[in-house]
Design a binder for these strands. Sequence first.
DNA 1: CGTACGTTTGATCTTTCTCAATAATGGTGG
DNA 2: CCACCATTATTGAGAAAGATCAAACGTACG
Lengths: 246, 246
Amino acid sequence: MDAPHETALELMARKLNLHHRLSIADRQAILNLPHKIRRLEPQSYILREGDRPERCAVLLQGYSFRHKVTGDGSRQILAINVPGEALDFQNLFLEEADHNVQMLSRGIVAEVPREAIEELILAHSEVGRAILITTLVEASIFREWVVNIGRRPSRSRIAHLLCEFAYRLSVQQLAADGVYELPMTQEQLADATGLTAVHVNRVLQLLQREGLIDRDRRMIRFPSWERLRDVADFNPRYLHSLDLEV
Amino acid sequence: MDAPHETALELMARKLNLHHRLSIADRQAILNLPHKIRRLEPQSYILREGDRPERCAVLLQGYSFRHKVTGDGSRQILAINVPGEALDFQNLFLEEADHNVQMLSRGIVAEVPREAIEELILAHSEVGRAILITTLVEASIFREWVVNIGRRPSRSRIAHLLCEFAYRLSVQQLAADGVYELPMTQEQLADATGLTAVHVNRVLQLLQREGLIDRDRRMIRFPSWERLRDVADFNPRYLHSLDLEV
DNA sequence: CGTACGTTTGATCTTTCTCAATAATGGTGG
DNA sequence: CCACCATTATTGAGAAAGATCAAACGTACG
């Protein structure tokens, strides 16, 4: 009765509340959304370019990523999603998916029917506003990625990605400060930064020699947040978080 | 009383209608929005990072662009705006501007007070929906720019930018097919593609030698749309236009 | 008609990529 | 628990795309 189902969408409510304070009633309406829980393996697709989905997946556990493939077959990762985020909200309003969404790690999503979300928005306009704001923040992150890939050298570029990920996890209280597991292979890191896997490897080693990061498998630790932030040219303004000063 | 003022926002209504069909009443409500007309010189700022604006500028004539400056002083252009587009819609919902908006050419904007737009959205929910959709399309364009800058070689990258611009202009019926004025210097083109001005110059010359473009000053002509599109790896799906097949 | 800005050119240098091989790691079935 | 396989990480050498620097040339416009 209670257990996972009742609280499954708690993270989504918390995420929306991060950017726009919601009333108890609004949050309860989110928790009451009808949904189906799905467990997903790493690499499984949640959405493919060209799809016309009738449901909206909310990530509950694990990580996923958005990506596109160019004509000559190379891949660009566009975003990393952390638990609590809606993965195909935009497809409720646009006809066709313009990119792919795939699981990075093993994970769980809740699938909410399109109409349920539309009704929620109509009945609770503040939730609609919260969703719009979340969408605007996502767009802001895309803009920062354009800057990162377009204008920063590889060392800053990778450092920036690490900072963003750490920051977003800590806002969501998913990471103890300074340590977290980066669920990406170096090849995925390369596809997210517009570099090659070989070069990512060399840059990670450089960052490590400089004492900016400390790696063990996929676990990453930042000996000094300030130094890494400076190297990364990381300014969290673009994340538009209400809380948190780091 | 009538003249320019009455019809100034016509373009905005047409732009919104492009992605989401609006009723006559909805369109009329847009045209009735209170606004102040401002003429702007090239390079003048409409919005600066960190601003907290109380009005929303709609571009009526001329072109503007969004950009950010990195810690080491280099600039990345994030988007080009064409007439009809709202320039700081997001700032009605997020506290602080996270990037700059500047005029590319001489132009005219209409400034609409924040509350007027909020009331419009409340009274005409379909307009709110149209604005949300437009915002989602803008985010889609940012994603394509990430791909373009992250994974395409300079020749395709510049060709892609030219295609996108031509396509968007023709959707808005602002360009005769195959010819338009590109209101950007080569340095701005460089900042939009993550390249240097010198390299942009060489690539433009290459495209010209290949017969893919034909330049005279800032006028650009495409002798063969199909060939340029193939070189650019350009697929307009990400623009989510309702009309038009090219 | 001069000045500021934008474009073009050449030479050289760096960053990043490519290709190819080797080593480590993680998971699987026996 | 161990041997095996696939994936991922690491290394080296060489090549290429694009950056940098500096100068010359054009063009628009006050």
